[in-house]
């Protein structure tokens, strides 16, 4: 271990090698996955043989997969709507209203973020059954939307904390009422956190499986479609769709990162890029 000041690189050399090894560990499965999506001889074995695009061709003509993709997109968009439209008032309330049970409310909202998905999923399953509803994409949307309010709230609350309160005071001072102030000052000031939170929620919903597992009806989302196929036997077609999901995720992250860092001071660009929800300050 060596210290922070500029020092000869050799001092941190051992640590650097260790860090490189960790990176290798993190990326090894992903690299394997991508390579074998071109493997003509199945998902395993070594070395990969008969490199081919056949699996992608099969994938693109696989109706069930693309139906599932469509379902996932519908669910994710709806979840973004629900989570943002409730997470925004929740963040505002946490920021500026004091009411009895506020601390409890805060913890409750954030609970799905830290609780294992199975607990949230099963609770909602019981609730849905108890109210006599059928499981469908609607129940999945309800589950995703509700669980992801936590993400929306943390991200937007962080945005509110960074916002200059005098902005709203200035608006009221200039004669705008609360409603006008909300639309003309608060919301535009939060546009970046809103977009970033929306993107984050979209991605999390697209990938969600633990809560979905219990709330799914007849129409599968993409992760559950893949899950079902894994149990029936694996072909590199799954590698192919996984590779596409990977590329799609990376594209979204880059876009999200761009949103988060835009307009940030260069003093702490790294932390600015971190989802508040993942900083471990959930409680």
């Amino acid at each position: 271990m060596s210290a922070a000041a500029p020092q000869p690189r050799t001092k941190a050399g051992g640590l650097g090698i260790y860090a490189a090894a960790v990176f290798a560990f993190l990326y090894f499965p992903i690299v394997v996955l991508v390579i074998y999506s071109f493997n003509g001889a199945g998902v395993g074995g070594f070395p990969p043989r008969n490199l081919t695009l056949e699996w992608y061709r099969i994938l693109f003509s696989d109706r069930a997969i693309w139906d599932a993709v469509l379902n996932s997109v519908i669910v994710a968009l709806a979840a973004v709507m629900i989570a943002l439209s409730l997470g925004l008032p929740a963040a505002l309330a946490l920021d500026r209203v004091s009411f009895p049970g506020k601390a409890l409310f805060r913890r409750l909202v954030l609970l799905p973020l830290i609780l294992p998905g199975i607990i949230t999923g099963l609770s909602l399953l019981m609730f849905v059954r108890y109210t006599g509803q059928k499981l469908s994409l609607l129940t999945v949307i309800l589950g995703h939307g509700t669980a992801l309010i936590s993400v929306a709230t943390t991200e937007l609350f962080a945005g509110l904390q960074k916002m200059d309160r005098a902005q709203e005071e200035a608006s009221l001072d200039l004669g705008a009422n609360y409603w006008q102030t909300f639309w003309r000052v608060t919301l535009p000031n939060l546009s970046l956190p809103l977009a970033a939170a929306g993107l984050l929620i979209f991605t999390l919903s697209m990938d969600e499986i633990a809560v979905t597992f219990f709330l799914i009806g007849r129409d599968n989302t993409l992760p559950l479609e893949i899950w079902g196929r894994l149990r029936r036997g694996m072909t590199p077609e799954i590698n192919a769709i996984s590779t596409l999901i990977f590329i799609f995720s990376v594209a979204l992250i880059l876009f999200w990162y761009h949103l988060r860092t835009r307009g940030q001071s260069s003093a702490e660009p790294l932390l600015a890029a971190e989802p508040e929800s993942f900083q471990g300050k959930l409680r």
């Binding site: 200059d164 005098a166 902005q167 005071e169 200035a170 001072d173 705008a176 009422n177």
Partner: peptide, 15 residues
């Protein structure tokens, strides 16, 4: 409420 007062403010941080 502040928005009904014929009073305007120049804020310290300008806002």
């Amino acid at each position: 409420p502040p928005y009904r007062r014929r009073v305007n403010t120049v804020f310290q941080s300008y806002a």
